[in-house]
């Protein structure tokens, strides 16, 4: 089924079209969310939220961009919001621990294992995921979309609503910053 037809059916409230949409794009949404939040349960939660939003707002989708581009944008927005909420909770937790005297017992980002990474690369990938958390948001998005989702620079530019030149520049800076962070990580 082609995209305009799928969108038309979704806009008419066709339940089978929604099932097909979820079947087709669930891994795209889940993998993107997982690359950003680095937690399987959170990524699953975000994936559900994304499809609920798609279901509720598909009537306003004009079809100017590809369905996948729209889904990437919603997913990235939700994943980054989730990150911010988590950071707020963490800050509140620090304040709470100051008063209660409890110690932090959370896992560090370096322990995250992406299920799609080859076994012999797990350790290196965990270090890279840790470094990714330390670099600016837009560099992290560009790097994750290109390296983990396999999108071309042109596609990344469409998703991020920017120019090809800007994506090239973002990727260059992302690699430079990741190198620095990895050097710090291995030196400790």
């Amino acid at each position: 089924m082609n995209q305009p037809e799928l969108i038309a059916q979704l806009q008419r409230g066709d339940e089978s079209a929604f099932t097909r949409l979820v079947d087709e794009y669930q891994d795209l949404v889940y993998n993107t969310a997982l690359g950003i939040v680095q937690n399987e349960e959170d990524a699953d939660d975000i994936t559900q939220e994304v499809f609920v939003q798609v279901y509720q707002s598909v009537s306003s989708f004009r079809g100017d961009s590809k369905m996948s581009t729209w889904l990437y944008r919603i997913t990235l927005g939700k994943a980054l919001d989730h990150e911010k909420k988590k950071k707020r909770k963490k800050r509140f937790g620090v304040m709470q621990r100051l008063f209660t005297g409890e110690r932090e017992d959370g896992l560090t980002a370096a322990e995250f294992n992406h299920p799609g990474i080859q076994l012999e690369q797990k350790e290196n990938a965990a270090a890279l995921f840790y470094a990714l958390k330390q670099i600016p948001e837009n560099q992290r998005i560009a790097f994750t979309l290109h390296k983990l989702e396999g999108r071309s620079y042109q596609e990344v530019a469409e998703i991020m609503n920017t120019s090809l030149y800007a994506v090239e520049s973002l990727m260059g800076r992302a690699k430079g910053n990741l190198k620095k962070e990895l050097e710090k990580y291995y030196a400790r």
Binding site: L34, H114, P115, I117, Q121, L148
Partner: peptide, 9 residues
């Protein structure tokens, strides 16, 4: 290390 990574399902 992300080269040839499969999509998480």
């Amino acid at each position: 290390s992300f080269d040839n990574a499969a999509r998480a399902e």
